[in-house]
Design a protein around this nucleic acid. Structure first.
Lengths: 212, 212, 212, 212
DNA sequence: CATGAATGAGCCTTCATTCAT
DNA sequence: CATGAATGAAGGCTCATTCAT
């Protein structure tokens, strides 16, 4: 059990609230006053418990990483399945994890802010969250292409699949504007995942054939 | 050169500098002082010429839109070509437009900030920049699928293609980290565009077959 | 014909507009920009024509005094009438001059501001506007009391009558709030004047009797 | 004495000083810096304790109302006395309350500014200070006229009496200029009150007779 | 371990005035 | 005689941090 769970309750509440606020506003837009107010803590509490806004943010990132690492297994679907099946499962899990109003609702938003407005914590995020997920997908795509596939081609397809998933989060606003009828309830997400998987599978296979 | 310039020289300088600064820092983080200093103008100049920081930002957005609308025709490739050919041309033009170290280096960054931290100007950006481009691609995909295609399927494929292009801009940092060998010189962009087009084409055709 | 009418038209417009704006906002709250805008003059025009906001205000006060001195005779009613009649006429003229939407609507407001937020021009205003009016009323009251009346008693009654007139201007807001049914159309003003005159006459006579 | 005080000492000092400064300059002309300096507080203290200049002003108004409400009973003279006696007592109490160099010297000035340059707080002032006083006088006048008196006539006389009292405050500067020999020591105030009461009584009675 | 009080640096805006043409 | 452009001083607000208890 890590340090952010030890100590008193105020500290924990602060951390939880900060995660939400940072997720909503990003590091620089987030206001210490806002966090303390929502956490029903004194304005000085941040400095007392964490040493400052900056360090609080670091703690939140660490927190997020731990939480996420616990959820990561969901993406690592049954290794015995066919690559095709695993691709579908991956996309499905990723989409649901990102878009369904699940537990750490703040989680993805936080990461998004970190990516578009990087702070010193970006490295941590990439190594602990992005890379593991990326590697999972990379392995699936690798299996689809077979051992003979050139790494940069595997990487390209991995990126293509990722991009199709990620866009529904990072550019949700715009996606909705361009296609207002698109829904995001579980059933619609399911269909979306299937389409992405099928679309990508076809693309991968086709290219696998013609380009050795 | 005296302090009192003819015409709107100061105003123009202010606009140019502001575009860069807003692109670097986003609206809220950008400092009026910074802009004025770089533009060698008085702190009150922003207020005098534009009426405030907010309106200056609006002006920059309008400026960006004008610049961009001039580049838009490049995406509208020869209508006589086959849809396949047009898809490739579109992706190529889009990628080059976004990634080549071309004209206004600040342009894309500005848009990125606007999308991740939307202001009131987002609507403008969407309607004048995003939608025209989106519609172009939508038309190409529509031609590929034929008249019988359901609109929401056309929209899905359009989004998938767009996402593959956009990710090389919005998440460049991460793409590079995950795949360090990826280059972005013209030759590499050319190859990237071909891959995206081919991958997408296969995906679209496959799905077109099985799903009516 | 005084200097504020000579010179060009811009200057005159500026003066006219400034009078209104100063009347509405008072000297310090009035904004040079506002005045110039309404007068369709350049922002620098005030400094050019008058030398600054301060001097413009002085000019306005002088203007007001001249205008007012021209209107003053209206208060100096027929000297042949009885004092009782003259009192009524005075009150009526004063009330109408203050409250009817007459020509220099800005005039009284300007004076009011000057009195509650005095500037260096207060002396001028008092000597040229307040005192002449006061003296008129003082003379009427003196005639009512007869030659034997002590000056401080004449002064007291003068003040009492004046106060009853002035309050309908200086505290209009409050008067209306305390007595919402009170109207201020010409007929109501007429009645008001009669009441004030009758009330005051009775007071003066009663006191004249008992206090020698 | 350290910079960190217990309780709301700074807040109290700020309030007291602000009352004076607002009374002297009015809301808009008063400078936050000035207030903080005189109160030996930091410029941000206003924001910390009150939330801004505006709210500080509100607090001052409330403060003034509290102070004043404590003094209000002095005006509500013995109900058993005759109306004539009560009128005299009322005028006397009002004049002394306004003009004697009593408690909060800033109080009346503050109200004056509020009336001539109304802010959102005017309503509060009217309802808590003006109306109670007005109602007191209205009742006295009503008793003098008897039950048969029309409300608008009672209101008129009330206004006339009030105006005679108030002018010695709102237009003190001018009153003195017009009648330099007038004194305002307790004895003179006493005489003034008697004159106003007697004058008004005569006016009221006379009109009561002739106008039903 | 925790808090209410206070601070100061930084920022945007307003506004009368000045400059050069 | 007149103006568009530019300026600087001053004001108020935000916000993370620090102090004393």
């Amino acid at each position: 059990m890590s340090h952010y769970l030890t100590g008193n309750e105020t500290r924990a509440r602060l951390l939880e609230v900060a995660a939400e606020v940072f997720a909503e506003q990003g590091f620089r837009h987030a206001k210490a006053q806002d966090i303390c107010q929502r956490a029903q803590a004194n304005l000085a509490a941040i400095n007392y418990h964490f040493g400052g806004k900056e360090q609080l943010y670091q703690a939140v990132i660490h927190y997020a990483i731990e939480v996420d690492e616990a959820l990561l297994p969901h993406l690592a679907v049954d290794a015995a399945s066919s690559p095709e099946e695993r691709l579908l499962q991956f996309v499905k899990a990723f989409l649901f994890g990102m878009l369904s109003p699940g537990r750490p609702a703040w989680h993805s938003k936080l990461m998004l802010h970190e990516v578009s407005n990087p702070t010193a914590a970006l490295d941590l995020v990439i190594e602990h969250l992005v890379r593991p997920i990326h590697d999972l997908l990379y392995a699936i795509v690798g299996d689809l292409l077979g051992v003979k596939a050139a790494p940069n081609r595997v990487a390209f397809f991995t990126t293509s699949v990722m991009s199709q998933c990620v866009i529904y989060h990072s550019s949700m606003e715009i996606v909705v504007r361009m296609n207002p009828s698109q829904q995001f309830d579980p059933a619609a997400l399911e269909q979306l995942a299937e389409r992405i998987a099928r679309f990508s599978l076809a693309g991968i296979r086709h290219c696998a054939d013609i380009e050795v």
